[in-house]
Design a binder for these strands. Structure first.
Lengths: 191, 191
DNA sequence: TTCTTTATATGATAAAGATCATATATAAAG
DNA sequence: CTTTATATATGATCTTTATCATATAAAGAA
């Protein structure tokens, strides 16, 4: 048995990582398999021993992305849940996120998903659910009571990031993000 | 001079209308020129006397869409600005909008725009600005003072519609839309 | 009716890109 | 060191689709 199992795993993850970034930034159609493979210094031939095809890679990359998202990081013990949540939301609503290499596919792929296959939609729905749960946990709402607030919050932050990406003018982007950061405080009842 | 000028204008509008609907629903790449033309009972050959190419059609359709959007409809005289705004927002945050034939490209194409050309981005930015202005007008805020509230409001409704389209389960969609309808009232200070 | 202009249709071209078939290289096992 | 399974690379194929070139048809003008 040539090539250790770990080697294959590593390669798979390199592919997933390139795919995650490229797909998130440019959507399914604009990215080519070749391009993804070259981004991790491989050629397209190697691709098919790791994934059954492009769409398969897309949904796997989505899962992978959700699994390694910023939101899933553990809270440091020395700060409160609400403080931590504030930090997470500010990072989400930042220019660095909008323009950076760790894009949240929920925002970056919001409209791309609609034309994709069931596996991709399922992965997206799962990630969306998870985001709401994580935020609800940190916000510490009483179950049913204020779930709606969290749902409107996630719609807002996802919308804000998606819109920000369409806009070239940096000042406008700052303005959108700042407005929404402020609104998160209002929704969470911290002002 | 064969074919009246109005005939050409009519055809152009038919094409724009098919394009608007198809592009909004499925994005730039998934839609073919052929498909758009067949949707208005023409063949692809006729296309190039009306538009210089597919990307040109895309940006033109975006402008056309913004120009004929629900939001631009005139307010009936017998109701207040705030009442009218409430109606507009409820219609925007409805299943009919999410699943219907009059999609708002701001929500439906939020992430598709990123990979498009400058003309498309400009058209999108223009439509976005207009949406904010219209809502600000109806909400009657004092210029700079609460502009941020409106910006967070538009982020939320655009985000909500975009997310709703990714979700198959009708009950979940209703839940998202209802939560955001409620939040619009809070943001506009009506509760 | 005939002529002429231009919208529309049809057939051809060419490029892009996903996937497959085949060749090569690598490293573990003996 | 040799063998061998499998990861990777290369070349070929096939489909899709935008766009172009050319033909046809429609309708206003004479």
């Amino acid at each position: 048995m040539p090539y250790s199992q770990e080697h294959k795993e590593k390669t798979r993850k390199k592919i997933l990582n390139s795919a995650r970034e490229l797909f998130s930034k440019r959507g399914f159609d604009s990215v080519t398999v070749n391009e993804i493979m070259e981004a991790c210094s491989l050629t397209r031939g190697a691709f098919y021993t790791h994934f059954s095809g492009k769409s398969n890679l897309y949904s796997e990359a989505l899962k992978y992305s959700a699994m390694n998202s910023e939101l899933t990081k553990k809270k440091p013990k020395n700060i409160s849940s609400k403080q931590w949540l504030s930090q997470l939301l500010d990072a989400y609503l930042s220019v660095e996120h909008v323009r950076g290499e760790e894009p949240c596919p929920l925002a970056f792929l919001a409209t791309d998903i609609v034309s994709r296959d069931k596996a991709a939609k399922d992965a997206y729905a799962e990630a969306y659910k998870k985001m709401n749960e994580i935020i609800m946990d940190y916000a510490g709402v009483d179950a049913t009571c204020k779930e709606e607030n969290i749902i409107s919050l996630t719609s807002m932050i996802i919308g804000a990031v998606a819109i920000s990406r369409t806009i070239d003018d940096r000042r406008s982007v700052e303005n959108i993000l700042q407005s929404c950061r402020q609104q998160t405080r209002l929704i969470l009842g911290e002002i």
